[in-house]
Nucleic acid binder design. Sequence first.
DNA 1: TAGTTCCAC
Length: 695
Amino acid sequence: MSKFWKPGTERPRLLDDEEGGVLFYSASPISSSGYGYANMEKQRQRLPVYKYRTAILYLVETHATTIVVGETGSGKTTQIPQFLKEAGWAEGGRVIACTQPRRLAVQSVASRVAEEMEVKLGEEVGYTIRFEDISHTDLTRIKFLTDGVLLREMMDDPLLSKYSVIMVDEAHERSLSTDILLGLLKKIQRRRPELRLVISSATIEAKSMAAYFSTRKRRHGPAENMKHGPSTEAAILSVEGRGFNVEVFYLEDPAPDYLQATVSTVLSIHDREPMGDILVFLTGQDDIDAAVQLLLEEAHNSRYQGLIVLPLYSGLPRADQDLIFSPTPRGKRKVVISTNIAETSLTLEGIVYVVDTGFSKQRFYNPISDIENLVVAPISRASARQRAGRAGRIRPGKCYRLYTEEYFLNEMSAEGVPEIQRSNLVSSVIQLKALGIDNILGFDWPASPSPEALIRALEVLYSLGAIDDDAKLTSPAGFQIAEIPLDPMISKMILASNGLGCSEEVITIAAVLSIQSIWVSARGSEKELDEAKLRFAAAEGDHVTFLNVYKGFVQSSKSAKWCHKNFINYHAMRKALEVREQLRRIAQRLGIGLKSCEGDIQAVRKSVTAGFFANACHLEPYSHNGMYKTIGTSQEVYIHPSSVLFRVNPKWVVYNSLVSTDRQYMRNVISIDPSWLTEVAPHFYQHKQPNPMVH
DNA sequence: TAGTTCCAC
């Protein structure tokens, strides 16, 4: 039995014990199915946000920016856009926008609001996400969209002039596109004082967010301007949520092995606590598979019968993910072992117990080495609170934190590092350039990225020919690269394929590169996967292999069965088709004629080189273990074992990306002729001539 | 012979 915690021996803690933030109210819940007699309007009135209707409308009327602090279940996302519409903010052809970081949220919130307003989705209430525009130019008054889509809309309409109010939801998550959007909206406000912003944020961030939106440069215009316009001080309004109390327990002493602590805590809950499902937060597939294995072994023990153990992570095949949502049979207890996908992206009903290991995998970017790393790191207090909240959705719950209270209060950071400070910024910088933001280093960000990361991004864009000596977008290349919604290196590859007569093929490659993985990696069938890969493997490398897979998929009439037989992820292939179709349309708009090279693979390889010349590597002479060195910085790198070129080790290669584990591994590799480097990127290689005589 | 949280245009 676990020696890490003792039920009943610790003082129960409510979640509002730190920093004075009231996080969960124990008001009685309302499920949408629980009140058969209540009509939609009555349900709306029961939401906590309803009693703030007048206050919200007053603040939006009188303030340029209103920050609404609201916890899960407050109803802010579905109700505030409706309040605004009812108050007239959508009159005169104007539109109310509400952004979300995730596609799924956009879809579900939009259909909920259309239902409440009793209108057809896509007319008065609509939504837009990538690949799906369910909105109507003339009819739609409330529009839900991802923040990425709204950023794209700015390319056509930089002042977002059709919107009267823009609500940015989940701003506390500090995703890359949310932060860029906030920075741009602040700029737009200066030009459009009539625009209103509503920003939904979590408790702790609210003040710094308000300060960000309140600092306004003094204008030289007449004072009357300020008198008649809305206040430029951001208003803050707090709305309680409607979760249940969640009791939080901490370890008395730090756990030496969080995997073991997880297993014993789960078994202990199963042993002593009333029925209710358990959600465990671990870091990645490896940990999760190991924990599932350990628990399944225990489940054979008769004491622990009745445990249904399920893994959950994004790479899991769809059918396995769906098991999570099947109802728990009577007398059984479901244990879901998940990555942080269950923290925000997926909501599981029926969870009463949460086990929080205090770690997650996080991306970190080093602008000096230009390498993005995925590392296991401690979560923030905000994340810990979010995880705990997952236990309080259907009734009062319990959260077991596998770390000490002292650690939580004194060691954990209050907030995570915003994504913009952890990422490669090449895509973001070109997007800002395309919107006319010339002074990238002076841009007023909600959280400033490091100057090194910005400079590195500018360097990459310069080497791609996307910006000139004055750091201005070049015409037409820079504008075209910005227009294509992909990594600029991939966009450059597509542009180059035009002149080389292989745009058909290169667009396919670009589509496949932009999705996670087209292979099915089921545990225990690695050998079969490798065999399947060999059926498609091309001597030139992974990019050409993708072309073979795509061809086979199309020849099979896009069959799911064919995919299954060949260890190919059917859903990934469907997505690749969608991306390909979008790229085809954009290419046509840019005047890139669709042409097939009819098997002239050298043209394809040259196009890849034209985008990824900066990732060129050569095999170390006399290397026995396949060690390569990068041309630019002479870093040691190796071909990833999942590549078809693994152990083939051509002398010269370019790679799509690096992953760092114990070594730096190149993923998606293609062999090249080094003379192409000076041919496709003379400006880049004129001072560092790759020497074809190395071998 | 390794193994990747998540999101998005």
